[in-house]
Nucleic acid binder design. Structure first.
Lengths: 343, 343
DNA sequence: TTGAAAGCGCTAACAC
DNA sequence: GTGTTAGCGCTTTCAA
């Protein structure tokens, strides 16, 4: 057992050749005689030698590494997207440096600084929003490093983005609720200040109500990191004119909401409808399964990675991609039972 | 905008000092006069200079990087554990290189080779099992690199491990099922050849049945990567003497099972009981919520990371930790309705 | 308090 | 086909 790993120099010495030959042999980057190759292979085989990527990175100024930053791994929508990034990156010979921000601007910034210091070749980021995260994104742009925003709605054309049309998807979801006869529709959302997606979804919610001449109910914001619903949500649910439908800004929230409602004796969807947003796969397996707008998270991760790599390798131009979403007509929403029949 | 990022040498030139002084200033690693410090700060501020970690890593032979390998990010149990690793690593100034194996031995091996090449300082791994993954683990041991196996049951004392007692937890779960009057209890599991945890859980299942003089039913194995349950499962569920209870080797499987059963008109828990294993947090929010054995995934990740770092930094000895599990008495299991009253 | 210089492990001219 | 060599960007003696 070697105390310290070998260097190419030592391998060269043992094989009786020069370091250049070893380098050529190990990288198949130039001619090497069979004799030399075999000598080298022998040394490598019984020493377990492996080229040191750090030396190579320094010399070639290429790290073959991508930085990936998401708010949290504990929401499957992000875990799935990271999984999508990882699979493509791995195929293309890129490593993944992973960080999570816990929805905190300060952690976004420090994660990005770490990535920059580590000389990653590109970044896949899901940030709070372009405004609040401006300082951090500024760093990336100043470093002239390609990056793609994932999930964040596209707000400019200067950089790449992959997302869905959150506002439209929310609009469609709420319209569907309205067409099922619901009039008192509340929105429960993760803190708007921590997610531009929530903001867009809320806008879609308002659009839908406005188009139907229905008054919106004050949005109830909850934290992202805790599963417990706030008192505000509970008070809303037990009040006199309690909503007949809830639009939750994420599936995780919707799942908690369904549970909380049933604890209050309100059955979903018989007494009240609940819809989520994201389309995490577990939602499909629930009973009732979740009505929601589905984001193709893994595909977003795939695209983010392959686009990023083509920017790195081929200097491809920045691009904004809006992927199609679709509504999953789950069992957690239903015709409002007291519907008076107005159309 | 700089085409290529600056080097310490260029900063030194611009600030009119030597590279050694810049290094000392930026790392607070030695005395620097106020005058020099200010000159350097000025240059750094308006150039956005950042020390290149690769140069530093080569010089110091420290990468401050941990490699993390899990079978899949799409199972929240692993995503949560990775999240736990990440949080501790970040606090300690370590970066995370992430890879997933999709439960494939070949990908485990190549991921580990990439980690080795990248000169990570330690590894957190969840592998198929120590036997099958032997070749890959061999590489790590030969490289003399500290690692901790996470989730994999401890089979030797030569390396670190953090897990729960899978066999005991499964035993307890199945005993509880038996005490609720169930006698026809089936086990549905992810392929045993892809997970030593499944194997242990199956042993616990058999222990429990054996202790009560009940005949086990042939285990039904399903793939990990697809949510659809196999025909074998369906045939079992609709057969004559179909089980009154299902023990699933993961919560994800249990959730799919509940859904599949209800599609067959069998209500959970009224007609049939289903229990899972893992304790993913979403399971708590389901209706019915999941009876399961809870693994403290995030805590396992936390411990894996901090233990690994103390091995790296302080040469702490390898350690095997078995964390306590607990049973979540969810709503997905119930007294068997046709219970004849035997005790 | 500072600078010169060696060298971490590697690749890629370049000369042979 | 092969070897020599000059760095890549940094830290760290060591001497001043």
């Amino acid at each position: 057992m070697e105390r310290k790993s070998l260097t190419i120099k030592e391998v060269a010495r043992r094989a009786g050749v020069s370091v250049a030959t070893v380098s050529r042999a190990m990288n198949s980057s130039g001619p090497v005689s069979t004799e030399a190759r075999e000598a080298i292979e022998r040394v490598v085989a019984d020493s377990g030698f492996r080229l040191n990527a750090i030396g190579r990175q320094l010399k070639t100024s290429r790290s073959h590494t991508l930085g990936v930053l998401v708010p949290s791994l504990k929401n499957p929508i992000f875990a799935d997207a990271v999984s999508g990034v990882e699979h493509i990156a791995e195929q293309a010979g890129f490593r993944i440096l992973l960080a999570s921000s816990s929805y905190k601007i300060s952690k976004e910034k420090s994660a990005i600084e770490t990535f920059l210091t580590s000389r990653v070749e590109g970044l896949v980021l899901t940030v709070t929003d372009e405004q609040s995260s401006h300082a951090a994104l500024e760093l990336v742009e100043h470093a002239n490093l390609p990056f793609v925003l994932m999930f964040n709605p596209c707000k400019s054309n200067s950089h790449s983005t992959v997302s869905i049309d959150n506002r439209l998807a929310a609009y469609e979801l709420v319209c569907e609720l309205i067409s099922k006869g619901h009039r008192r529709i509340a929105m429960i959302a993760g803190n708007l200040s921590q997610s531009d997606r929530s903001v867009e979804r809320h806008a879609g919610y308002e659009d839908a109500l406005y188009d139907h001449g229905i008054d919106p109910i004050d949005i109830v914001e909850v934290g992202f990191e805790k599963p417990e619903l706030s008192d505000a949500v509970m008070n809303l649910a037990i009040g006199q004119d309690s909503p007949t439908a809830y639009f939750c800004s994420t599936d995780l929230l919707a799942i908690s909401m369904i549970r909380a409602l049933s604890a209050l004796g309100r059955a979903v969807p018989d007494d009240v409808s609940v819809v989520g947003f994201d389309g995490i796969s577990i939602g499909e397996s629930l009973t009732p399964n979740l009505a929601t707008a589905v984001q193709p998270a893994e595909a977003m991760g795939n695209w983010a990675a392959s686009h990023l790599i083509s920017r790195i390798e081929e200097g491809a131009p920045a691009q904004n991609l809006v992927l199609p979403h679709y509504l999953r007509h789950g069992e957690s929403w239903a015709q409002f039972p007291d519907d008076t029949g107005f159309t």
